[in-house]
């Protein structure tokens, strides 16, 4: 892009008009981004406000004096580290499950030729569309019968059988990988498992990273499953811990927002580092 705002002086009205258009575009883009970011700013500054500033009408964005009190209180009133640890454990476990199961299935659906392959692909896609309300109750009863209510098993196990959306995404990626490498290894007499481990998995790395990032954020932010399965506060994930805190403490907005800030950070860090994988992954799911 040409740096239009540095155009030589006296280049006429047309240039001025163009410079104006550039400036207008900047303002529009900036305004849009601000609209989406503003709630975060409110969350962040409220977390540093004293009650006098929080309950001030009309509201002001910046506190008149900054305080760490809300964070101290959040730590006192709820086991923040435990919730973070529990959530990290569950999220990491589902990522492991996803990384083991999804590429196996995706490989079968892309590079192996067998009868029924396209039928299975249709089943994977149909599963993506099925409303979770239909399966929710029987699956709950199943875990109950296994005495696994109030454990992490119901939250973790399904990932080890593959998440349809991610299976599909990795499959699409593998479809675009040329067959030659795999064919050559087959001629050399390598076993299918060996081909999978030493050729396919390394090739699929970008899709695997995207899947890991997605799975992590899904589990990290999940509310419904912990709500259904966890009722022992020792085991709470952050979603359900925050939910319980909100109910018990007569809406203490300062500490609540402080906790919100802390619980958003890890997903935010993952997002910053994995940003390009996110955007690539979403569009891949939509198009191919």
């Amino acid at each position: 892009m040409a740096p239009v705002d540095r155009a030589a002086p006296g280049t006429g009205l047309r240039e001025a008009g163009r410079a104006g258009r550039w400036a207008l575009r900047r303002v529009v883009v900036l305004g849009l981004a601000l609209l989406f970011v503003f709630p975060f700013l409110v969350m962040l500054t409220t977390a540093f406000k004293l009650p006098d500033d929080i309950f001030h009408a009309p509201p002001r964005l910046l506190p008149s004096s900054w305080t760490w009190d809300n964070f101290t209180q959040a730590f006192q009133q709820m086991p923040v580290w435990r919730y973070l640890g529990n959530t990290l454990f569950v999220s990491a476990a589902t990522v492991v499950g996803t990384l083991i199961a999804c590429p196996l299935v995706a490989y079968s659906l892309s590079k192996l030729r067998w009868r029924g392959r396209s039928a299975l692909l249709a089943v994977v896609l149909a599963t993506m569309m099925l409303p979770p309300q239909i399966t929710m109750i029987p699956v709950y009863l199943l875990w109950n019968a296994l005495h696994a209510g109030n454990t992490y098993w119901p939250l973790i196990t399904p990932a080890f059988f593959g998440t349809p959306f991610l299976i599909f995404m990795i499959r699409q990626f593998l479809m675009s990988v040329p067959d030659e490498l795999i064919a050559a290894a087959r001629l050399d007499g390598a076993s299918e498992l060996r081909i999978y481990l030493s050729i396919v998995l390394p090739l699929a790395r970008p899709a695997l990273v995207t899947s890991a990032v997605f799975q992590f954020v899904w589990t990290w932010t999940d509310f419904l499953n912990p709500l259904i399965y966890l009722n022992d506060s020792e085991k709470y994930t952050l979603s359900i811990g925050l939910y319980a805190f909100f109910g018990e403490h007569d809406i203490a907005w300062g500490p609540l927002m402080a906790a919100c800030v802390m619980f958003t950070m890890p997903a935010l860090l993952i997002f910053i580092f994995g940003q390009r994988y996110f955007v690539g992954g979403i569009s891949a799911g939509a198009f191919k």
């Binding site: 849009l32 989406f36 970011v37 509310f223 919100c260």
Partner: peptide, 15 residues
């Protein structure tokens, strides 16, 4: 700017 618009979708829904 694109990242900022996308950001709310990765915040825990409880938050």
């Amino acid at each position: 700017f694109r990242a900022l618009v996308y950001l709310p979708t990765i915040v825990p829904v409880v938050v």
